[in-house]
Amino acid sequence: MLRSLYAGVSAMKANQVKLDVIGNNIANVGTTAFKSSRVRFQDMVSQSMSDASAPATNQGGVNPKQVGLGVQVAGIDTMVGQGMMQPTSRNLDVAMDGEGYLIVATGPIIGEITVTAGHDMVASTDVTKTLTSSYTRDGALTLDHEGHLLTSDGFRVMGYSNQTSYDSTGIPTVSFIGANDAAVADTILLKPLSIPDKVGTAKVKSFSIEKDGTIKAILDNEKVAIIGQIAMASFNNPAGLSKSGKNLYTQTSNSGEPVVRSGIKDAADNSKAYGNMLSGMLEMSNVDLAEQFTDMIVTTRAFQAAGKTITTGDEILQEIIGLKR
C-alpha cells in the first residue's frame, strides 16, 4: 500500500484537530477572560531506505534516505496573554491586571484553607471545613441574598476575612477594623468572603473593591471598615492549568503549586508580583479574530491538500490494478 495514503490520512486528522481548536477560539471570542489555544504539529517517524555512510578514501559520504510517514499533533498550548480590559462601571466586576487568578471553591460557608508562611495552600483536615478549590480570571462577581460573594455559577470567592462567626442561616458576623488600622484580622486562613448588611452595629451603606483586593465598606456612621481582602494565586506554569469549563481552571502536575498573594501588611509581602485588581472592569477574551480566520484558511487548504493526496494515491492504485487485464 502507498505510504502517501497514510500520510494524507494523518494530515487530515491533525488539521481537523486544528480546525476544532480554531472553532472553539472563535466561539469564545466574547467569553470573559477566555484564553485562546493553538495547535502545534510534528512529523511522525520516518522510514529509512538506506543509512548514512561516512566519507571513504575513494568516495564521499552519503546522506540517509528517509521517507516520512505523516504528521501528528505535538501539543495544544493555552495562550495565557492578558485580554483587553472592558469598563463596566459595576462595583462587583473586577479584572486582574497581572498574572493572578481568583481562588474560588465549593463547600461549606464555614470552610477554610490554611496559607503557610511560604504562601502555599493547605486544605483543612476538618471534614466540616473542607473546600474544593478552583481558579478563574472571570471577575464578574455576584452576591446572594445572604451577602456571600460568589461567581456567576455560585462558587465561593476566597480571601482573608474579618468574619468572626456565622449564625444558623450562614450570615456572618464581621468585626470592625478601620481602613487605617492593622488591616485584615486573619492573614493565615482563606475563607469564603461575604459582604454583610452590618459591621458591628453599623449598617453598610456602600462598598468598593480596591486595587489590592481589599473590600472597604462605608457605614452609616460615616466610618470606613475593611471587610476582607480577595485572595489571588499565581502558578509557575499557568499554561499547565487544566480548563474545566465555566471559566474555571484546575491545578495539574505541570502547573506547579498555587502561590497565594500575601495579605495587607503581611511581613512576607509578595503582592508586587501580582499586579492590581481593577474594580468596575472585566478582562475580555484574548482571541484575535484576524489571526484565527487566517489560520482557518491555511488549515482548510492543508486539509484539502491532504485529501487530494489520498485521491491521487487512489488513482495510482487503480492504474496498478489496471495493469492486469
Rank of each mutant, 00 (worst) to 15 (best):
8 G>K: 00
10 S>A: 15
11 A>D: 10
24 N>V: 03
24 N>R: 05
26 I>Y: 01
28 N>L: 02
44 M>D: 05
56 A>Y: 05
75 G>S: 02
76 I>K: 03
78 T>A: 02
80 V>H: 08
87 P>A: 12
87 P>W: 10
88 T>A: 05
98 G>A: 13
104 V>P: 03
106 T>G: 14
115 V>Q: 04
118 G>L: 14
118 G>N: 15
121 M>W: 07
121 M>P: 06
122 V>M: 15
130 T>K: 12
130 T>E: 08
130 T>G: 03
132 T>E: 11
132 T>R: 14
137 R>M: 01
139 G>V: 02
141 L>T: 06
142 T>Q: 06
158 M>L: 11
159 G>C: 07
159 G>H: 02
167 D>A: 04
169 T>H: 11
171 I>C: 07
173 T>Y: 15
176 F>N: 00
180 N>T: 05
181 D>T: 14
182 A>K: 13
185 A>D: 10
195 I>E: 03
201 T>K: 07
203 K>A: 13
207 F>N: 07
213 G>L: 04
224 V>M: 04
234 S>H: 08
243 K>A: 10
250 T>K: 13
264 I>S: 13
264 I>D: 13
281 M>F: 15
282 L>N: 08
283 E>D: 01
285 S>K: 03
287 V>I: 01
297 I>P: 00
317 L>G: 03
318 Q>Y: 07
324 K>T: 12
